[in-house]
Nucleic acid binder design. Structure first.
Lengths: 340, 340
DNA sequence: TTGTATGCGTTATCAG
DNA sequence: CTGATAACGCATACAA
């Protein structure tokens, strides 16, 4: 693969001139420009990102940290970022953190080694302080799905409490009075916040969701089955089921069917996320739309903006909820008015 | 962010010495090593990948080109590569090609600019010659899901014809005699190869799949619905349905239900890929397992191997099908013995 | 054991 | 308009 020097030698000009035509720089004779351009193409010149980054002190790639590529939720997130990267002709550096503290840290440090000046990071395991530290080092450091007050202008997040309230209100609106929930056992704030929201809305209606009607498991289909199984072993005194996400909802639904309980006739259930899967199940899932792709795009654009102007949006009058997103109820077929 | 020079100044030693302790080089005094190490940590030194790549003439990241991150199939593929990258402590550079010729080319060229010496590429739009060209430039260039004879040792692929045969044989074994198919309209070889396999097996049994019983659409759920709709508008003379992939199968199944046709009682159907979704539908999909994650891991390891030893496996006695994979039937609930 | 010097490919600042 | 030349951060051959 030829370097600028090779091209220069072949063209009988200096490296500086070649560099100028590559970058469409001014002050190059038309004839020279044409000749060099032809040579560039002919010899198959490909610029070296490393050399450029070194001298320009700027990286052209955006770093991304997510938990797990195979998870449709994160795949959608990554897809959102990819779309803005493609549009701006930027490369994406991807690392997975797996929600393990050390893996997450290593993922970010890898990106740091690449001198990424913009990063979109999904981190649930790292502590606030570490993240604040990283944010200080990287101008375009943006957190997604997490809110840290000290760096609120770098956080693109979903209001999980409000989401929980919406779930509950929807079920209340359908006339339900007894509830159960399958939730995630992962030690992150999301499940607790959603539960908090649910209980808040229920309390407003003078109703409750007792601890005995909640089961925790892994936030996937299998976890949904297991949690549902555990609930059914204990009680059948509920007509509405809150699910931590669509994957669990799907698993729970399977398990309900297996017990001869029909959805939504006997039990109404509602999921969270509105991933593709929600439309594939039968009945189709009533769920909350998590606008993750939109949020991911926003986060990527934000990261790119901060990279250019580090001070942007950091004014003291900045609102805490500038980048707070909300979910909305998507009514499909898994929840209906209470029958009994 | 401090450079080696900063550390060297602070420690009162030369840059060379610092470099040596960073790389665990020999010939460094214990006392010096300890002092420098402490400083490295204290000052928060982070190696600069660009500088390293430039001087070492080696890149430490593996490039990946897939069609679409949001597609579960490709997400799984990427996940496989990510897992080996993580294990070898390597960064992943991801580009999406979207099955457009120019986008695919640009994706690879981006990776080239990063001087990736290993790449796993999923390309359906680029012509053989271009790919062979890239393979010549990049020692660790590996194609996934595509076979090009001239660079067979760089191709990790699935035998689609054999897959088609397996689908057909399974249905034949269940006693089916009349068939239909929903397939992908994308101009890539996969759908044709699968159809070829299906027809071959059918022909061996003295049966056939007429062109009028095949509909083409986009290879997703919606495409499955549309294609199914079109078939049903024309004929109901089939008890077995072949689907290009699980997403289409799911869509087709929905449409069958909407027409009062039960699966598998009235119509048996079989998908392809065995993505997560296949277990989420009701009934669960009988399908062919596409070992894409295993294949992706293999491809990544291959790419990394070739990067180190470009000549490995390129011996003339190399078998064409060294990296050919096969699918297997996964029996679940969407296909049963013929009832009428 | 440690330091000096060179070069990797590129951009940018000077002179000419 | 064009050409030297100096960085950028790092690894390494060669000296000391």
């Amino acid at each position: 693969m030829p370097t600028i020097k090779d091209i220069a030698d072949a063209a009988g000009v200096s490296q500086a001139t070649v560099s100028r035509v590559i970058n469409n720089g001014p002050k190059v004779g038309d004839e020279t420009r044409a000749r060099v351009k032809a040579l560039l193409l002919e010899m198959g010149y490909v610029p070296n990102v490393h050399a450029r980054a070194l001298v320009s002190k700027h990286s052209t790639s955006i770093g991304v940290v997510i938990a797990e590529l195979a998870d449709p939720f994160f795949a959608t997130l990554a897809h959102g970022i990819q779309s803005v990267a493609l549009q701006k002709n930027i490369q994406m550096l991807l690392s997975c953190g797996s929600i393990y503290l050390e893996t997450e840290r290593k993922a970010i440090e890898n990106l740091l080694q690449h001198r990424c000046e913009s990063m979109v990071v999904h981190s649930k395991a790292l502590d606030d302080q570490s993240l604040i530290e990283f944010a200080r080092m990287v101008p375009g450091f943006v957190l997604i799905n997490r809110f840290i007050p000290e760096i609120s202008h770098r956080c693109v997040w979903l209001d999980n409490v409000a989401g929980g309230e919406l779930m509950a209100k929807h079920m209340l609106g359908l006339g339900h009075k007894s509830f159960a929930m399958v939730s995630s056992r992962y030690e992150i704030e999301d499940p607790y916040q959603r539960l908090e929201g649910v209980r808040k809305a229920l309390a407003d209606a003078g109703l409750e969701l007792p601890d005995t009607h909640i089961e925790y498991s892994t936030p996937d289909q299998q976890g949904g089955e297991i949690a549902m199984q555990n609930i059914l072993a204990r009680t059948r005194d509920f007509t509405a089921l809150f699910c931590y996400n669509d994957a669990m909802a799907s698993g729970a639904m399977s398990m309900l069917f297996d017990h001869g309980i029909q959805v939504p006739k006997d039990v109404s259930l509602i999921g969270f996320d509105d991933i593709l899967l929600a439309k594939y199940t039968r009945p189709k899932l009533t769920t909350l739309r998590y606008p993750i792709e939109v949020m991911a795009k926003r986060a990527a654009e934000l990261a790119l903006t901060y990279k250019e102007k580090p001070e942007a949006g950091q004014s003291p009058d900045d609102q805490e909820d500038t980048f707070k997103y909300s979910s909305i109820v998507v009514k499909r077929d898994s929840a209906s008015t209470v029958k009994k």
